[in-house]
Amino acid sequence: MKLLLKIWRQKNNDSKGKLVEYPISGIEGDMSFLEMLDVLNQELIEKGEEPVVFDHDCREGICGSCSLQINGEPHGPDRLITTCQLHMRKFNDGDTIVIEPFRATAFPVIKDLMIDRSAFDRIQQAGGYISVNTSGNTVDANAIPVEKDKADASFNAATCIGCGACVAACKNASAMLFTSAKVSQFALLPQGQVEAAERVQNMVRQMDLEGFGNCTNTGACEVECPKGISLENIARMNREYLTASARG
């Protein structure tokens, strides 16, 4: 397969970036998108050019590291997958592929396609924990009965890998789906009730401080989320937030 890649190259956050064209050939349909970039980087290294910097780690869709906007969509044209799970057979011989970093003011570019997503870490640090005594007498979480549907919904929310596709897809660069998943995974469980009000208020405050946009319920985040995190989580967070604010 022969392709024309248009890749965002940017030296650092202070410099201006631009799309650079790279023709590439010999790409197999069974390669993953990241393997295709590996091939390109090998060629660039052999030519003495600087390879393209991009985030990756597990390459099996569970770490949330890869973060590419491919032909205008986060993680590319397929659904419920991350970039590392995207196969080149989804493209045709002769295609032009535009590759950019996830764009949000809160996700500054570090270099080329690599972005700084520590804003997500700070949102989690603002309230993504529960009060458990870990001195050695910790009660097994399974000892506390939890309704099946709530346990499932909590688990589903907890499958968020924090990749940032929701922010990248949203026309407002809103982080509501991510934040609501992190709120929901605790809000649905008995262990999460102790800090429930404080948690949602602190996490939403941090989300706003980071400069993410507002949710206008377009639903783009849910469609592009590689883990299928539902908009129900945003509604739940809104309920939690309104209740917490009303109680003061």
Partner: peptide, 19 residues
């Protein structure tokens, strides 16, 4: 506020694909 939240626009943005 929403425009400010994305200071660099995408060269290609396929909004119709998901919303």
């Amino acid at each position: 506020q929403n425009r400010k939240a994305r200071n660099v626009r995408y060269a290609q943005y396929k909004g119709g694909a998901n919303a």
